[in-house]
Each structure stands twice: as C-alpha cells, then as structure tokens.
C-alpha cells in the first residue's frame, strides 16, 4: 500500500500545487522520491518530531494548503494526539493523517509499533473521518478523495506492502461514505476493512465450497461516517452477518454495526471477529499474530459452521 499511496499522491500533487507532504523520518519509497525531487518545497521531513509534523500541517492548512502527514500509524495518531484533536479536528482542517502499517502489520516490532485501537481513538473525535481501504486500488481512490476534499481532517489507515487487490470485480466504484460490495451473495455477508480483507475472502470461499453458502464480501472502507443505510440493508438482506476487523472489540466497525443492528431491529445472526482486548507479547509473522488473536480462518470457519448447522 505504501507504493500505491506514493504513486497516487504524486499524481494528485502534480495536479494540485497546494498538496504538501510532511513525514516524520519515515517515507514511502518509489514515487515519493519523485515527489520530493520535483516538489522539494512541498516535501518536509521534520525528523522524529510528530507534534511539529501535525502542528505544521495545521498551519499550512490555515493558509489554504492541503497537507498530508505520514508515518507509522501509532506515531501519526497517538504521539501527537492533542495536536490531531485541537489543531486539526477542533479547527476542522482538511489535513489527511496517514497511518501506515496500521493494525498489527508490524508484528515483529511489538506492541509499541501496533495500533489495535486507532479506529476507536480517531472515530471518537468530532469532525474526524476515518478511511481504511481494503487494497492498493481502493487506496488510490481514497488518496484522490483526500487530495481534493475541503471538509475537514481524515485519518487514512493503510497497510504496508504486498497487499493483493480485492476490488477488481467490485460492483460499484469506490465512493466516500458508501459500503462497497467486492462480491455479492445472498446468505452470509462479511463486513470488513483494510488488509485483513484477505481473510474475509478466504472465509467466504470456505463457506461457499463447504457449506454451499452464497457470501457477500463488503469493504466498509469508510468507517466514519459509516454508511448507516448500507449497513441496515446488509443486515436485513442476509441471514448471517460477520464483522471482521483488525482492531480491539470496542469502538470499531463491529461496535457500530451492533448499534445499527439494534436500532434497526435486525433479525439476522451477527458475529464479530476482532483482536482481543489485550496486548500480546508475540513476535511472529503478521499471519501468525492474527491466528494467535483468534482470527485464523479455521477458527472463524468453525464458529460460522456451527451457526449454519
């Protein structure tokens, strides 16, 4: 996703001279180098100093610019949180806070480099929007949106590298604030966001092949504002709805979907698979860490099989 982000931002920046990128000693390679070489004044590396990164972005935005801040997710959101809240959200500045390697992608680096609760933290702040594309192609669309919108701050939660593309056969184009059916079925609906979408497809395939279910896989790429109407429809059109997210159980997509389910008197089965409400001192691969957190396809499949029996 880093490369897709760089390429998309370079394209947007070429068209829009107000786009600035402020990084904190972490930079996506590839096209970002091209950006830096062609627009040196619009690429600022503040060093390991995330508070000034965020405050500067607010100052640039106050003068009409369209800044992006960029570093590893935990440092782009948590470290300068009061600047994010006061300078960006309270003042409602059109700044995109890019959280790279969000979730537990940095498995081997340990808990200090992971964001288990970033969606909850970002979503809790008024004026903030939260976008988490499922793949590099959705990320390109999200960057194009962020590069032109003037409505306020966005937390753009992205993965790192090597994510496959899932949205090739999506029914509709990416649209801010709208659920997107990557694949439409009739019986079971898996709502998800971000790189863990890979496991949503793997779960869907097993439910289809081993239980004959027709399964929808939906990218809830805009978590705030969540597509309330779209979620209601998904809850009412499917017999079973699954929320899969790389996030703690509270304050993320699964919490929101449960609220909407209650409000809309949904009758479907509703299951959420999330990271646990705990820190894990585990240093295996990303896939191993997801498995360790109860997000193995095998486990999810077993639970859903029992539900469908």
């Amino acid at each position: 996703m880093r490369n897709a982000f760089s390429e998309a931002l370079y394209e947007s920046a070429t068209a829009n001279p107000d786009i600035y990128v402020i990084v904190a000693d972490i930079s996506p390679a590839g096209s970002m180098m091209k950006f830096q070489e062609e627009y040196p004044e619009r690429f600022i590396n503040v060093g390991v100093a995330e508070q000034v990164m965020t405050g500067m972005a607010a100052g640039l935005a106050l003068k009409g610019k369209q800044p992006f801040t960029y570093t590893i997710a935990t440092f782009t959101l948590y470290r300068p949180f009061e600047m994010v809240r006061d300078d960006l959200c309270y003042q409602n500045m059109p700044v995109t806070i890019v959280g790279m390697g969000a979730g537990v992608v940095y498995s081997g680096l340990g808990g200090t480099h992971q964001t288990l609760e970033d969606v909850a933290v970002a979503s809790a702040v008024p004026n903030m929007r939260v976008i988490a594309p499922c793949d590099p192609e959705e990320l390109r669309d999200a960057v194009a949106y962020c590069a032109t919108q003037r409505d306020g701050p966005v937390y753009l939660r992205i993965g790192k590298a090597g994510e496959p593309v899932f949205s090739d056969n999506a029914e509709e184009p990416w649209e801010f604030g709208k659920l997107r059916y990557l694949k439409r079925g009739e019986d079971v609906c898996v709502l998800t966001y971000g790189p863990i979408t890979k496991r949503a497809f793997e779960l869907a395939e097993r439910l289809e092949t081993e239980h004959g279910q027709s399964v929808s896989v939906v990218s809830a790429h805009t978590i705030k504002p969540l597509d309330d109407t779209g979620v209601r429809e998904a809850l009412h059109r499917h017999k079973q709805v699954v929320v899969l997210e790389e996030h703690v159980p509270h304050g993320g997509l699964s919490s929101r979907v449960k609220e909407i389910a209650w409000d809309s008197k949904a009758l479907c089965g509703l299951h959420s698979f999330t990271l646990g409400d705990r820190f894990r001192h585990f240093y295996g691969t990303y896939d191993e860490l997801l498995d360790e957190n109860g997000l193995s396809v095998e486990r999810m499949f077993a639970i859903m099989s029992a539900e469908l029996a």
Partner: peptide
Amino acid sequence: LSMSLGMAYA
C-alpha cells in the same frame, strides 16, 4: 509555534 511555523512555511 508549530502552527505559526506551518503558516510561515506556507
């Protein structure tokens, strides 16, 4: 001061 720096830089 960070916001002022951003403004001056802009």
